[in-house]
Design a protein around this nucleic acid. Sequence first.
DNA 1: CCGCGAGTGTCGAGTTCTCGACAGTGAAAA
DNA 2: TTTTCACTGTCGAGAACTCGACACTCGCGG
Lengths: 244, 244
Amino acid sequence: MQNSLLEALPPAELARFAHHLVQVELERGRLLYDPGDQIDHIYFPHDGVISLMTLMENGQAIESTTIGPEGALGLMAAVAPRQSLSRAIVQTPLRAARISAERLREAWDDCPSLRDLVDRHTEALYGHAIQSVACNALHSVEARFCRWLLTCHDRISTDTVALTQEFLADMLGVQRTTVTAVARSLQAKGMIRYRRGVVDIIDRPALEALACECYGVIRDTYRRLLGPASGSLNGGRGDRAQGG
Amino acid sequence: MQNSLLEALPPAELARFAHHLVQVELERGRLLYDPGDQIDHIYFPHDGVISLMTLMENGQAIESTTIGPEGALGLMAAVAPRQSLSRAIVQTPLRAARISAERLREAWDDCPSLRDLVDRHTEALYGHAIQSVACNALHSVEARFCRWLLTCHDRISTDTVALTQEFLADMLGVQRTTVTAVARSLQAKGMIRYRRGVVDIIDRPALEALACECYGVIRDTYRRLLGPASGSLNGGRGDRAQGG
DNA sequence: CCGCGAGTGTCGAGTTCTCGACAGTGAAAA
DNA sequence: TTTTCACTGTCGAGAACTCGACACTCGCGG
């Protein structure tokens, strides 16, 4: 059990629905939800990344936010039945705990810490989204490319990311040729190495220097709202931690 | 009382906190929150627009989402104390009902419909944000300019919008010269007329044709989640409406 | 009345990214 | 081994937008 949300729950609450959790392994590219789909299952990743993509009328899909081990997919359906607003696809090989949304809703009233955690998670996801709004309007493809790599790197256990340039171009909402140009530039600087469908991260500090501030802002938002000192375990109001 | 959320509440629930609501009128440009500010008041607009802006390290601010009469500002603080993630400024002269977040939290446990409505509002706001993520990455300044005008037009009672090109450039995250060029183009087509700090909307259908799909998507998301048939008033699960 | 300042018009060089096209290449399948 | 196809490299014209600069003008205050 490595999902942060599940780990943060008091054992007594976790016990109320743990027997409904199913451990699953999902392959890269697996489609979990499309816009309008009823959210029937909630996924708590242990490692790996799920991309949430906004689908346009012409079929183009662009990444809006991501879900990793610090969060969960479909958590809004823990409160009440909900439809997905995004396309959700598995980005990297994924290990996750899955639960029927209905089963989780049945435990809802008896799980105050879970409710609090879900609220904070929702807020963090919103923070992720509004930072991406700014990022897409203001930052270069190169900076966004680096941010994307770093975010992915944080959530997997290796320095090797399996992805094609074509796929990344879709994520970022740009042409493949643009991604190719950026990738070559980064490789020339010795920051990454890549071959067909694989990117190796060589010099992470350099990537951090080239990435936009959004990388750190989003990471810190999750930490602040869902981290150990967020007050989610000692019941709400008090902020006795030393800060942020 | 014209705010949709307040109007949608059962009178019994509204009565639990209505005596704490204060009617306020706020001038254009008024700063309500900056990132990190404790959310001490919640605003339910009757007419007018509040812009939520993501603030970057260099001080640049770009609009991420907006709040109008169909929503409320700071609603996440109705659940538990929260800090603002955005800068919130009054976009057009605003009439709103304001309540202390703490007072609303006191009524929280006794207001199931309010809780449901807040959940739906949060989801709609998130939907707004992820659509803007895609929009900023994929759509032209002209299309976004039109979307912005339409969204604003929907929420005020006149065909005249008070805004400078410089301000709109900030909202959209582009250069003022770009906004000027687009504005001139739209005026040449007879769709708008403008003078110093004022834009008149002449041909709304033409603006709708030029705006990107995001305008309609966001509007429909709010309607679906917060509209009369959303099930928020008859207590939850059942979807007995004819749907859509 | 004048002066000031915010808001707008415009210009032009430069950069980034688009978009279509086609060639090269590596890895897996036949 | 050969074939095949997905993935990458590259080119070039063009569009969109940036960025700095400066002139103009409207409306307000002195």
